[in-house]
Write a protein that binds this DNA or RNA. Structure first.
Length: 419
RNA sequence: GUGGGUGUAGCUCAGGUGGCAGAGCGCCAGGUUGUGGUCCUGGAUGUCGUGGGUUCAAGUCCCAUCACUCACCCCA
């Protein structure tokens, strides 16, 4: 064993990979049911897109990006998140010139150069939903509900929704100034003092107890909202209540990306240790303009597939191994193997999941393979059966076995499995 | 970037004070020359992370190094 996967890159092998697909499917189903269309965007983009979109002051941009020069000397960056790329694609192709909102979902890997730990990876898998071109608080609530329903569909019961608002460009500056005045008077380390000047809101989110104690009396955004932000926030909460989606008001919640405005939220799972955020999102009404586009509001979320898998496992929801196939072929001898190979192909074409034993495996080993595959039926074919023109079809669970003429095998099995 | 922990079979891990490298699971074969899941018997697989040092002798002690892992920070 000479090579190993790059540091911080998780791999999902069977049977655990089934959970990976289940997580993606749960969220994709909800997004599709809610009228969102799939969009496939690049894994890397112009570095400047992320610098301007995500924000020059963020840790993501300043120290976590996988940036490289391509052979033409352009600075490219592996996507650290999806929203900037989805917005860029929307603007470039004029999707926003049609009826609004533009409702999109996507999924795949994102990349951040960080020190790995439990639930934190350098290649992380996200599932994203974005609604572009709407200010309606109902869409804020809709996107939250999609994420919530995804967690519910997976059977997760411990997920918490932490909800906040960050105000808009009307009311946030005054709050920001008030918060800075408060924070400058505190006894904080140098890095945190620097943060006060760049992004003071994030100081509120500091988890260190000595910092938390000091910011306990800090002014809160919820006391500084303008009338329209307050109305927006109240409406979002009313609609969530109508849907029966529970949340906790968390006025200190801040997100690490600069583009967020108004509604912001995070989904949290208590069984995950330090990296407990399993999803997060909000409104980004200024993003389009930040990257050179027109004034175009948007709202959306990202959920972390890797961490949701950990949550599913923490709640012990991922135990049953799904059967790989419904029918498993057990050949005895070369002639039988050839004939069975064709029969298995025909079963697959008829929509029946099928596999067979290879490498001239003996009967015992092949039957063991049938057992491991989870197949409902084993089809045993040897010289005797070939001579008789039939195969032995064995129901694995009951052990009942009957001879079925080779010409009727596909139809019979398809019928029995459907019935 | 800063701290702590751990590296022994495919996996999970035992291996006081240095003395022939082990168990369980998994895998393969046989018991059953055409029948899996239970049971019984047998078998294969190791540069003991890597390099150096001490010693008659190192998985064990010392030094270095790499990897993994947890936490800070940050975020999905």
């Amino acid at each position: 064993m000479t090579f190993q996967a790059p540091k911080g890159v998780p791999e999902y092998l069977p049977p655990r990979s089934a959970t990976f697909l289940a997580v993606r499917t749960a969220f994709a189903t909800m997004a599709l049911n809610s009228g969102y269309s799939y969009i496939e965007v690049p894994v890397f983009e112009d570095t400047e897109l992320y610098a301007r979109g995500v924000g020059e002051s963020t840790d993501v941009v300043t120290k976590e990006m996988y940036t490289f020069a391509d052979r033409g000397g352009r600075s490219m960056t592996l996507r650290p998140e999806f929203t900037a790329g989805v917005m860029r694609s929307t603007l470039e192709h004029g999707l926003h010139n049609g009826q609004l909102p533009v409702k999109l979902w996507t999924t795949g890997p994102a990349f951040r150069y960080e020190r790995p730990q439990a639930g934190r990876y350098r290649q992380l898998q996200q599932f994203n939903v974005e609604a572009i071109g709407t200010e309606d608080p109902a869409v804020d609530a809709e996107t939250i509900a999609i994420a919530w329903s995804g967690y519910q569909a997976l059977g997760l019961t411990r997920v918490r929704l932490l909800l906040n608002t960050l105000g808009c460009k009307q009311c946030r500056p005054a709050y920001r100034a008030a918060l800075q005045d408060f924070l400058r008077a505190l006894d904080l380390d140098e890095a945190t003092r620097a943060r006060i000047e760049i992004n003071p809101l994030r100081v509120l989110d500091d988890k260190r107890p000595e910092v938390q104690a000091q910011v306990a009396d800090a002014p809160l955004i919820t006391d500084h909202l303008c009338a329209s932000c307050k109305a927006h926030h109240d409406r979002v909460r009313t609609l969530l209540e109508d849907l029966g989606v529970p949340w906790e008001d968390t006025p200190r919640l801040v997100r690490g990306l600069d583009y967020y405005t108004r509604t912001t939220y995070e989904f949290d799972h208590p069984l995950l240790g330090a990296q407990s955020g399993i999803g997060g999102g909000g409104r980004y009404d200024g993003l389009s303009e930040d990257i050179g586009g027109p004034s175009l509001p948007g709202v959306g979320f990202a959920v972390g597939v890797d961490r949701i898998i950990l949550a599913v496992e923490a709640e012990d929801l991922a135990r049953e191994v799904p059967p790989r196939v419904a029918v498993y072929g057990v050949p005895l001898g070369e002639e039988a193997a050839r004939r069975l190979f064709k029969l298995v192909h025909e079963l697959r074409a008829a929509g029946v999941a099928a596999d067979m034993a290879f490498d001239g495996k003996g009967l015992k080993g092949a039957m063991k393979g049938a057992d491991r595959s989870g197949a409902v039926y084993a089809v045993i074919l040897g010289e005797r059966d070939l001579a008789a023109g039939s195969a032995q079809v064995k129901h694995m669970e009951s052990g009942e076995q009957t001879a079925v003429p080779l010409g009727e095998l596909v139809g019979t099995l398809a019928g029995r499995l459907a019935g």
